[in-house]
Structure formats: structure tokens, C-alpha cells
Design a protein around this nucleic acid. Structure first.
Lengths: 228, 228
DNA sequence: GATTATTAGTGTAAAAATGACACTCATTTT
DNA sequence: AAAATGAGTGTCATTTTTACACTAATAATC
């Protein structure tokens, strides 16, 4: 190893994930109990292994908790204040993830004492994990207003009223359903199915699927949903 | 130190900055010559010191190259592919910075063999620095379309035609000057001064200043300038 | 089997924002 | 005095957004 490298201090590198879920009513974050001496609610996290990339490590750690693969995962921010972890200096790269709660295997999570918390009713969190969650909510709101990522929180087949409830939950507001469906449908990203939702309402709402192939991340924007 | 920490591998942590500047005509990036064996153009970078936060370190490194403090600095992304630096595994947290080229002290940069490059005419860069620049340009375009950050690239006093040239350069387009000034002025963030620019045009354009205090990061958006 | 309750689904009109487009103004140079 | 140059502004047509209320379909109830 060359001198200019040798002289440098190395640091521990952790990954922490803000895992969002939607239960049909409110937006939730999945937290686990952990801690060195006392147990505190915290984000799911783990250490970077020598052979892994950052996102790969975040995906592995997410899998360990949820049993899920192929979930939406986006780098949020690197947190590195000197004393954020009071025991050993650790840089944490936070990721946020959007999962379909129906797919989530709760058996696996028992090992971690995991629990879903409403974003409006969070406990005190370990270290700077509270800041991470705040930033993740901000990012989710910002991004979901312009890109079709909300669908990652819904089943593959969903109804317009379900989608509206999701956006209502994300932005803590109540969109007008006429304007909402016009705006959503005008993106031409939704495919109406021939099937109606049963059991929830008397009339039953049509199911839709999203056609993400139509959406080109590079060029297209999606919507502007940030309410005034 | 506790066992669960001890067992973990530490990594080197670097910071690299994409430094944007605007010379009145085109958008530039400041690059330096560096490399272990051969000299390659690269981003300005450095190592995280034990007593520093990430942004603090990025600001220090930026100061070492440019002599500038209080510049716009925003975390871009953490890059951590296992072999991105082929010599020693290094995680790099990239920041992007917007500087006023007039303030930039070129004497200091001679030490680093620094040079401004047009974003449309970049050399081959060290490691994954090319990816970093690509991402930074994307982020700048995305953000400048909705937040008043372009002003960081202009002198404190600027004219509307100067601002239009900046946006033209950022988006590689040619906005209509009537629509542009209407849109910009409708934000109510610009303060018209009583003074005209001399020497550039016969008539002279009025100078403006931006009132960033009026702009509340939290709630307000700014503009949507992404051209169709 | 008629009525009622419940959620789904749709249309319109007014206001605001956007995009396309061309002339006059102020000043310096010739 | 005329010409040249970039600065500055207004209008109209189109699109997008917002506010707002009724009918439709079905299941449950009487």
C-alpha cells in the first residue's frame, strides 16, 4: 500500500435503512429494537463487508430483516458527524426503501423485535436515526411528487381510491378525488384491468396496474403533487 | 471497544467535490491533476480527518483548492463499489459545490494544476469521477429547476440577461427571454437595483439581487425550468 | 324485492400558468 | 444624425389547475 494511503485513518462503515410501508391507512416505518447496553428502537442496520458495494450491503441487510428482494432502495444520505455513534466513530450511509407490507414476512422479523410505526407517532430513536427518518420522509414526499415511486408501496393490483389514500397519507392531506384521478390517469402510466375489488365497497373499484416501462427515468417527470 | 465493533473492517473515507462555476457563457467544472503513478484529471478530493464531519471535511478541502469559504455545498452521493479505487478500498462521499468564479483565487490553484472545463468537453477522469460529474450535472439540473440555487454561480449583483445565460447553459437550451423574465420575476425573490450594468451593452441592463431570506427551503418550491 | 347505505366514478366552469411571438427603448458608435 | 446593439415589455391562444356535486353500482337490510 502506498504511503499516501497508509497515513490515513480508516473508519467503520454502517448502513441503515428507513423502510416505509403502507397498510392502507397510514404510512409506516419499520423499526427494530437494538442497542449496546439498553435496547432502543432504531433503524435496521448493519456493517459493510469487504466484498460488497454500498447498495448491495443495504439490500442484504434489508433482506435479513424482511426476507424481501427486489424492493425499491435508494441512497438517502451519508451521516458522519464525529460522535454520532458515541462508542466508535462510524460513518453511516442511510438508504430508504419502499416495501409492499403484504409481502413482508413477519416471522423473520420476530428475531429482531421489529414493529411498524406510523410516521406521525415515532418513538425516540438510537443515535441520529431520528434525523435519518425525518430526512427520508422529506425525500419521499419530494420524490413521490414527481416520480412514480408510490406504487412500490401498493400491491401490484390496486384501485384509484387506494392510491389516493396512499398519497393522502404521504402528504398528510386530503386530495380531491376528481382532480386526483384526472391527474394520475393523465400520466398514462396506469393500465385499467377488467377486474373489480371485492369486499371493500359495495360497488367495487376497478383494479389498475402501473406500467413503469413507459416511464423513462432520464427524461420524464411524473407529477407535481406537493400540496399548497 | 466492544466486540461487535471490533470484528468489523474499517475503510478509508474520502471526499470528492464537483465544483461548478459559470464564466458568463458556459457551465464549468474545476478539475485538478492528480494520480498515483500517472497524472490524471480528477475531482478535488481529500481524506476525512478524525475530528471532522463529512461536510466540514468537504468544505476544508474546497477551501484548500479555492481559498473560498461560505460557498454552496451539498452532499451528492456516497460511492463505494469495492474496486472503485484499485489500490485501497475507499468510500468516497461526493459533494457538489457552486462557486462564483470571480471570487476564485487562481493563484492557490496553481499548486494543484487546476483548470476549469466546460461540462460539454470533459477529459477522461480518475476512478469513477466521471460518474460523479454526470450525477452532479443531473442533480444540478433537477435542483435548479425548482430551487433558487443558480444564483450561487453569479455575482451578488447580476442582470436578467446574465441569469438567462446561466439557465441556458445549465439546461443547454435557449429560453425565450420574455417568458424567462416573467417566470423569474414572478417568484418575487429578485430585488431590482437602481444601477445599470455598464460596458456590456449600449443600453445597459438593470442589476438585481436575490432575496434568499424570502425563500423558505422547507415549504416553498421555486420554479420548474426543466425544458420540454 | 324494495329500500337504504356506501363507496366509485365522472364533468364543468373559472382562474392561473404557460408558450409562442415582435416590436419599441436606451445608449453608444460611426 | 443615423445606425447598430442588446434591454425590456404585452398579448393572445392553449393548457393546466382548482373548486365543486351529482349519479352509478352493489350489498345489506327490511
Amino acid at each position: 500500500m502506498l504511503d499516501q494511503y497508509k497515513q490515513q485513518h480508516p473508519y467503520l462503515l454502517a448502513l441503515d435503512s428507513i423502510i416505509f410501508g403502507f397498510d392502507g391507512e397510514s404510512l409506516k416505518v419499520l423499526l427494530v429494537k437494538r442497542g449496546v447496553e439498553e435496547q432502543t428502537w432504531s433503524l435496521m442496520g448493519g456493517w459493510l463487508q469487504p466484498n460488497e458495494g454500498l447498495e448491495q450491503a443495504a439490500a442484504r441487510i434489508l433482506f435479513e430483516l424482511t426476507g424481501l428482494t427486489d424492493v425499491y432502495l435508494e441512497q438517502l444520505y451519508a451521516f458522519g458527524e464525529p460522535h454520532r455513534d458515541p462508542i466508535v466513530r462510524t460513518i453511516s450511509v442511510a438508504y430508504f426503501s419502499l416495501v409492499k407490507v403484504a409481502d413482508y414476512e413477519s416471522k423473520i422479523s420476530e428475531t429482531f423485535q421489529a414493529r411498524w410505526f406510523s410516521i406521525y407517532d415515532l418513538p425516540i430513536l438510537l443515535f441520529d436515526h431520528g434525523d435519518m427518518v425525518d430526512l427520508a420522509i422529506k425525500r419521499l414526499r419530494y420524490k413521490a411528487a414527481q416520480h412514480p415511486i408510490g406504487f412500490e408501496l401498493l400491491p401490484d393490483k390496486f384501485t384509484i381510491p387506494q392510491l389516493k389514500k396512499l398519497y393522502d397519507a404521504i402528504y398528510n392531506t386530503n386530495f380531491d378525488k376528481r382532480n386526483f384521478s384526472r391527474k394520475i390517469l393523465s400520466t398514462n402510466l396506469l393500465i385499467k384491468l377488467d377486474e373489480k375489488q371485492k369486499g371493500f365497497s359495495r360497488r367495487g373499484a376497478y383494479y389498475y396496474q402501473v406500467d413503469l416501462a413507459k416511464y423513462k427515468q432520464e427524461t420524464d417527470s411524473f407529477l407535481n403533487f406537493i400540496p399548497t
